[in-house]
Design a protein around this nucleic acid. Structure first.
Lengths: 220, 220, 220, 220
DNA sequence: CATGAATGAGAATTCATTCAT
DNA sequence: CATGAATGAATTCTCATTCAT
């Protein structure tokens, strides 16, 4: 549960080659541009030309760094998966449930606000059946969910929270927090603003935690 | 707020051409196949060939019915939009909040279970910036959300529910109920089952309504 | 030198079938529409759909009358070829050169004004190498030109006109008179009017005959 | 009245991209092949495949140079328009009318002999309504004709030529000289030779100038 | 007579990728 | 490192023609 969730392509890895400064920078520019394009159009819809242009280099040069379109896609996915999962990992069994969950939700909302494209790319990949990351979902992710479900059950047993089905609670948090990134267009159409607005993010967090906790809290 | 949300192409609609039996059947077969393909690959990723094959006809014949890929896409979208929105429309201001919201959530979950592809297609369209249905989002959808937000505020004033930000509550319901369709792959990877399983749907509904209402209910 | 220059397609001819009133009318509508389309776009550029639409019938029905696109084209060409050649045929060896040539030029200009599309279609066919009417050009047309060249030479011998190369004179008349139909767009762009304007046609005729005859007339 | 009549596509021109040797050669090969094909079949009838084949390169590579069929067509037209117009520009008001007009006619005949395909392409474009070059016809071309018409009127006033309607004289020259290129097929069918034959060109020029000038010359 | 349904052979582009320099 | 040149395998869409009714 430590290393990268997706192993880099052998082709790309080139363990021997200690990357130069310029290589490092170009790889970063490519991954950044690729994230933007893939998140907007999905894997098949994205064009290598556009990624290259956005990255400010020739298509040929881009393919010099990543041998193929799919290699870029995989690299981008690998890059974001770790960050996507990180927040859940920090959920502390020994912490106060309300505090722990609130800070988790807050972290997820922040992620949606800061990396909406990553969120959308992830959603896209999963919606298409997770062809590239199925292994990650069935392996590390499932393990993590199982582990944290245990934490929730543990809390319930101790009477700290009401007894709910842990996975469904986790899904609710994932769904709602991602929604602000993935459906930003719809939200903007309806409310005129979005998650990148601080006040809006605040009210989203308040409403969300309000709903969740007033429901979770054991009654007197 | 009655007619179809997306007007059919003038070209297609023409003089209200009374479609023959065979036309009706072929159009249906095409729309059905198209929904499957578009929902899996998005607009750009979908191939007309495949839609035709899934619909059991030649590509040429398919294009005899719908002049272009984008025409098919629009027709599919128009078809689903109405169904997607229908449940919210039925929310009755004079009904009991718990009963009303529960049946709304149930309807949405049922939609996710019965038409997961439609749900994913909708999500895909919105995630790409809603190029085709932006008007619908900013017009009819916004109007509907505004209207139902009033209902929620009304209920809060009467002390029937706790005072929450209505749009965020609506987003939460949308997000969670769609999640079961859109992220079915991830859910299956983690839980081994999904929304098409009756028991699972039951527990999803219970957990969801449990969380929402115990939090919405005004305290003594 | 009597029958039609292009024999009708065996397929179309159907000697046995004495055409009904309605058949006759539909054939005429088709030929008319076809002339318009072929003259605008050339053979390859023309679309059967459009001809059918212009003729006010279904594509299938059109193909019931003429078995194929090329059959329509041939029929149109045959129709116009005779009319195109007719004027030259009337040049009378025993008439007054000035009167004969003037009325010939006038007839050609009238043809350009009345049937500009026919003129353009003919031009188009010839410019593409006359694939359909090469036989007519090398046979009947050459014969006719030879015959009338003799007339011109005869006139020259009798001292009625100056001695010029007959074919070049004929070409000059063909070229200039057709120009007003074929290059109508260019002429309109430059002069703001065209051959369909009576005054313009008059001045074209006057200038043309003026140039030709003051040059042809033997000097004292 | 100096720069190219049709501005190159912004896309292509970009930063005055200094073309490499190989680019220059390939562009030339393409334009050459395109001229041949377009002139034979017109815009719609021409096939990109064939142009590529004639240019000795793959269709893909051709499209690497010119992004689309229409871009090639425009480039070809732009290339030829200037050359088509050039001769008229040189008509010198202070020169001797007979000498000036003769050398103009000679230049036009030479153009027809050397670039019959260009002539036919131009004719084709105009006959279809000049969709691409209407602006040129209504602007630069009209201006040029107006200017040279003044020259002719000026000559007439000075008694150097007979008083004729200048535009019609210009049309006569255009029509006849182009005729030898555009209707080469017909001319060959009738005479057995054509403008590419030196003797034939000579007799065409003599007959033409003979006709025109004996008519233009003021009588004693 | 007439039309709707269906199709296969094109035709123009698009696009990831390879090659040479 | 970097880029221009080149390509072949798709991919959408067009269009004349055939078939069934």
């Amino acid at each position: 549960m430590d290393g990268p969730l997706i192993p880099e392509d052998a082709q790309t890895a080139q363990d021997e080659a200690p990357r130069t400064r310029i290589q490092e920078r170009n790889r970063a520019k490519i991954l950044d541009a690729a994230l933007g394009t893939f998140s907007r159009f999905g894997y098949r819809g994205a064009r290598v030309d556009q990624i290259a242009e956005d990255a400010g280099m020739s298509k040929s040069n881009l393919l010099y760094y990543f041998g193929s379109k799919s290699a870029i896609y995989k690299a981008v996915l690998a890059d974001l998966l770790d960050r996507w999962l990180a927040p859940l990992r920090t959920l502390d069994p020994d912490g106060d449930p309300r505090r722990e969950l609130t800070s988790y939700i807050e972290a997820k909302l922040r992620f949606s606000a800061e990396y909406p494209e990553a969120s959308r790319l992830f959603a896209n990949e999963v919606m298409q059946g997770a062809p590239m990351i199925r292994d990650v979902l069935e392996g590390p992710l499932k393990a993590l969910v199982d582990e944290k479900s245990e934490v929730l059950r543990h809390w319930a047993e101790k009477g700290l929270i009401r007894d709910v089905d842990p996975p469904h609670l986790i899904f609710l948090i994932w769904a709602t927090t991602q929604h602000y990134a993935d459906f930003a267009t719809q939200i903007a159409a309806v409310t005129g603003t979005g998650i990148d607005d601080a006040a809006f993010r605040r009210s989203a967090l308040d409403t969300l935690t309000g709903l969740i906790f007033e429901g979770l809290a054991p009654r007197a």
